[in-house]
Design a protein around this nucleic acid. Structure first.
Length: 951
RNA sequence: GCCGGCGUGGCCCAAUUGGCAGAGGCACCAGGUUUAGGACCUGGGUGUUGUGGGUUCGAGUCCCACCGCCGGCACCA
């Protein structure tokens, strides 16, 4: 890294030039001032941080960043992009009079800290706190206007106490489908007691044992223990949520193999909220691509449930194409389907058992590889197709997933490619229900035929229905798929053989992890193994101290060993004596911990009221900052900025928790984040030599479009900043070489906030030069004295100023900081010209310039503000307002086109009428020359814009 | 394979939403200043708007096809 000011020429640099060293002095002075004066403390209407006078008569604004995980590597220049963006916006809105809440906490539970502890033997809390201290230092130097009082860590005991409390709210809640809302579990029990709702067992509630009652309520609780198939990752020693498993069946973190197996785990019934999570997306101000990703993830799919009779009872299948039921020639069950055992005949049992065993040890990687040949086995039993009354064989295959639909499908090989391949593989019959158009046969080079043995693949699309009739129903002939579906659904429904239904891709959320560094569950088990919640008065359940952080060591391919969570080894913690209302008894604690997502599901609510020990957030405080702004508004954070990587994880989980809290009456807002903005990523070039080794990017020189490292030619690539690519640039380097204001300005100027772009350190100097020129317009570089004059601003400069004000205000409101900056540079360039022509900068320009610069470069703006003689911070000064009279110019230049080509430009009065404009254009010599003797066939006049003659 | 997003001077990016292709920064070139370099000042835009069609008086912008890059999903019945 070359230094912009070589020390041996230090004498030639004016003493008061805006250098990195000068900036550092200014910046640290104002950072201390803000801290000492609590400049950014936002008043609350109630609770411990109440300051009603500070709240009165101001609109509120809650600006939020996706909070960081305190990584040991510290920050690189890509990390603060969003934080700077929200800071600029928050400062801008403060100047417009808003009471702005802006704070930053730390998402400090998680795997990396634990893995660090395993390798070093140092407690994760020690390492986590050190990392947080380092990140706080790096971020403080950036000059972010955060309310320090509200900076929480998810690992704080007083924070995770409330994470556990919210878990208990969810545990003690059920979903009432009749009103589509969560309700307290006691209201369900009341229904059981009164008989309004019958129990699953059919027994009267009051006659049931505690174990029976527990079984009944567990079937409804929004947090429950389930024995479902989970994603077991022996390499990490834990299970993972679906969202944490990559498409190729490996862990998102660490890239270890993941296996499907049954385990008893805490699960949350997020799937019951599918419709609300889907529908309420319409009410959110979010980027459309993120909404689409959530829609795809929820995966709502309309179809029908169809019942097939069999020797083991009814088999229910889900299909999106009930109209093809006449072509269902076999049934396929998932290997985990509960009826498999009963349907397997004696002759087939051995091969069925073998297939199930083999399927259970197959990794998701293999199972989801769609290029793999279909596998499966015949159960020996048959079902009856309800429309044809024909017996059809029942097979088992792993391409049918237990977790989706009913875990069973009706196979229509003529209309589904997977079923087609399966039928071909095992020589099962294929019956056409739709005749494709001739073009389809032409495309496959075969003669049109409804004999599917000649078909090369299944046919999916609109086609004439064939072979689709029985005594009471006929779909045959030309009709739309939708009409055919409706006819079939009605027929099935009339006979109680099925009904239209909806299925979702979204599964319930696996919520326990076999780790140490996470929130303990506020759950204990009695001697009968029944779960009990810990009363609120006993929260938090503290994470016990641990001497050895190692998990049991497992081979990443060991799919069968059971996990032993670290907490299970803390025997004096696991066994505890509590009085849960029926006297002191011995209990066994839950030894799993919550996943890292838990804290981030609600942290924004704690920012609102971080020190409240009575509520997780005071209801009045929540209503003030996040309540709906009008009828039908969802409420929530006014602006949430973060990366797109959380589209279906954090953002979906947090919405789910928030909705439960809303339904139970704890928050007034229906959604946590009303407006979402995805910032882009800053990436960087990296360089490899011929051996494929990365070389330090800062040592690479460019020459004639090629790149060299120590005279050796190297190859450029583009990627994330990281150790492995040797292309990290840190904020600290930027502070040292340019200062924080220049760094902030560069990050905001390099492109739109939502765009990803490459970092280029050598471009930063442009922003430093701008601030140097601005500084030089205010200060004599040699003496350090203010040179601003009290003279009136000349009209030309005044007009340039107001044009700038108007544009910058609009750009900042729309988060277009890059164009706001270009307008400020433009104004400063105009001002520089004025100063260079022998004038001093007028105070009438410098004052609004300092105000406009303040959100972007707050330290320099504060410094100039103080030099101008003000004794209070610029933070709450009003943002300049443009004078409309100075925006409108008197004349405007209008291009005149002939046949769409610009032939001349005429200067006319603003607001000139259509006729006058046309006359002025026709009077222009160049225009008449271009038209010549021809007569225009058409004349287009756009008032104030252009004139076009078409010959 | 399906679904998104993006392609504008050498580079990062603007363009009042269909109306003169250029705001700003980097780089580059020339001149000034300077013993010199850096810094500073003045001036300079280097282009088939990814390609090919279409709509229109007029297309960077709208439509269609294709190419390239990035991202999401992927045996979801």
């Amino acid at each position: 890294m070359t230094s912009p000011q070589p020390p041996d020429f230090a004498g030639s640099i004016p003493a008061h030039r805006y250098t990195a060293a000068l900036a550092a002095g200014i910046e640290q002075r104002w950072q201390n001032y803000w801290q000492d004066n609590h400049t950014f403390d936002a008043p609350n209407p109630a609770g411990p941080l109440a300051d009603p006078a500070g709240v009165a008569n101001r609109a509120k604004l809650f600006v939020l960043d996706m909070f960081p995980y305190p990584s040991g590597a510290g920050l690189h220049v890509g990390h603060p992009l969003g934080y700077i963006g929200t800071d600029v916006y928050a400062r801008f809105k403060r100047m417009q009079g808003y009471n702005v809440l802006h704070a930053l906490g730390y998402d400090s539970f998680g795997l990396p800290a634990e893995q660090h502890a395993i390798s070093t033997g140092i407690h994760p809390r020690v390492n986590t706190n050190a990392n947080i201290a380092n990140m706080r230092r790096q971020l403080r130097r950036l000059g972010l206007g955060h309310d320090e009082r509200r900076s929480i860590c998810t690992t704080d005991e007083e924070f995770y106490k409330w994470t556990q409390w919210i878990f208990l709210q969810i545990y003690n809640a059920w979903f009432d489908p009749s009103i589509s809302r969560a309700r307290h579990i006691n209201e369900l029990i009341a229904q059981f007691v009164s008989g309004e709702r019958s129990t699953a067992s059919g027994d009267a509630w009051n006659t049931m044992t505690p174990a029976q009652k527990s079984l009944e309520t567990d079937a409804y609780r929004l947090a429950y223990l389930s024995d479902a198939p989970v994603n077991w990752c022996p390499g990490l020693g834990t299970i993972l949520a679906n969202e944490e498993v990559t498409a190729d069946g490996r862990s998102d973190i660490g890239n270890y193999p993941v296996f499907r197996r049954n385990m008893r785990q805490w699960t949350m019934r997020i799937s019951l909220f599918s419709d609300r999570l889907l529908e309420d997306l319409e009410r959110l101000d979010w980027p459309e691509p993120i909404k689409l990703m959530q829609r795809n993830w929820i995966g709502r799919s309309e179809g029908a449930r169809v019942s097939f009779s069999s020797s083991a009872g009814e088999i229910n299948v889900f299909t999106t194409r009930p109209d093809t039921l006449f072509g269902a020639t076999f049934i396929v069950l998932s290997p985990e389907h509960p009826l498999v055992e009963a349907l397997s005949t004696t002759e087939q049992r051995e091969s069925v058992t073998a297939y199930i065993a083999q399927a259970s040890t197959t990794t998701d990687t293999d199972r989801q590889d769609d290029s793999r040949a279909k596998t499966g086995v015949f159960t020996g039993s048959f079902a009856v197709n309800p429309v044809t009354n024909q017996p059809i064989p029942i097979w088992i295959a792993d391409y049918v997933l237990m977790g989706y639909g009913t875990g069973a499908i009706m196979a229509v090989p003529s209309g589904d490619q997977r079923d087609f391949e399966f039928a071909r593989q095992f020589h099962l019959s294929i019956v056409a229900t739709q005749m494709p158009a001739d073009a389809w046969f032409d495309a496959h080079h075969i003669a049109p035929s409804n004999d599917c043995s000649t078909w090369p693949s299944a046919f999916v699309g609109e086609g004439t229905y064939v072979n689709s009739a029985n005594d009471s129903l006929s779909l045959n002939g030309q009709r739309s798929i939708n009409d055919a579906k409706s006819l079939m659904n009605a027929w099935l429904s009339d006979r109680n053989l099925g009904e239209a239904t909806v299925t979702y891709r979204l599964r319930d959320w696996l919520f326990s992890r076999q780790r140490y560094w996470g929130e303990p569950f506020p759950i204990v088990y009695d001697e009968d193994g029944l779960a009990h919640d810990i009363p609120e008065s006993m929260l938090p359940v503290l994470l016990p101290e641990l001497a050895d952080f190692s998990p049991q060591s497992l081979d990443p391919m060991d799919s069968t060993s059971d996990p032993v969570p670290p907490l299970a080894r803390v025997t004096d913690w696991v066994t505890t004596t509590l009085d849960l209302g029926d006297g002191p008894r011995t209990y066994r604690r839950e030894v799993n911990v919550m996943p890292q997502w838990a804290g981030s599901c609600w942290y924004e609510l704690r920012y609102l009221d971080p020190t409240n020990d009575q509520f997780f957030v005071d209801p009045e405080v929540e209503k003030y900052w996040m309540g709906p702004s009008s009828a039908g508004h969802t409420g929530g954070v006014d602006l949430y900025v973060g990366g797109v990587e959380h589209a279906v994880l954090h953002l979906l989980y947090a919405r789910f928790w928030h909705k439960v809290l809303h339904d139970l009456g704890h928050v007034s807002s229906e959604e946590p984040f009303h407006r979402l903005f995805n910032q882009g990523y800053i990436q960087a070039y990296a360089y490899r030599d011929d051996r494929g080794q990365t070389v330090p990017a800062e040592e690479v020189k460019e020459q004639d479009g090629s790149f060299f490292h120590a005279d050796e030619k190297v190859h450029r690539e583009y990627g994330k900043m990281g150790k492995s690519l040797k292309n990290i640039v840190t904020p600290d380097e930027m502070y040292d070489e340019y200062g924080a204001d220049t760094f902030r300005l560069y990050e905001m100027a390099m492109g739109p906030l939502e765009a990803s772009r490459p970092w280029n350190t050598r471009d930063v100097v442009g922003m430093q030069r701008f601030l140097q020129r601005l500084w030089r317009n205010v200060i004599d570089e040699d003496t350090g004295l203010l040179t601003v004059s009290q003279d009136a601003v000349p009209e030309i400069l005044l007009r340039q100023l107001h044009k700038c004000i108007s544009g910058v205000a609009a750009d900042m409101e729309a988060l277009r900081f890059n164009t706001a900056i270009s307008k400020l540079i433009e104004l400063n360039n105009d001002l520089t010209q004025f100063v260079n022509s022998g004038h001093h900068a007028p105070v009438g320009v410098i004052t609004p310039m300092a105000q406009m610069l303040s959100p972007l470069c707050p330290h320099l703006a504060e410094e100039i503000w103080a030099l101008l003689g003000h004794s209070t911070s610029i933070t709450f000064e009003p943002f300049p307002v443009a004078d409309p009279r100075l925006l409108a110019s008197e004349t405007v230049e209008i291009p005149v086109q002939v046949n769409g080509k610009v032939r001349s430009r005429i200067v006319v009065a603003v607001g000139m009428s259509r006729d006058d404009l046309l006359a002025a254009a026709m009077a222009d010599d160049k225009v008449t020359a271009a038209i010549g003797s021809a007569t225009p066939t058409k004349t287009i006049v756009v008032v104030g814009k252009l004139v076009n003659f078409v010959l």
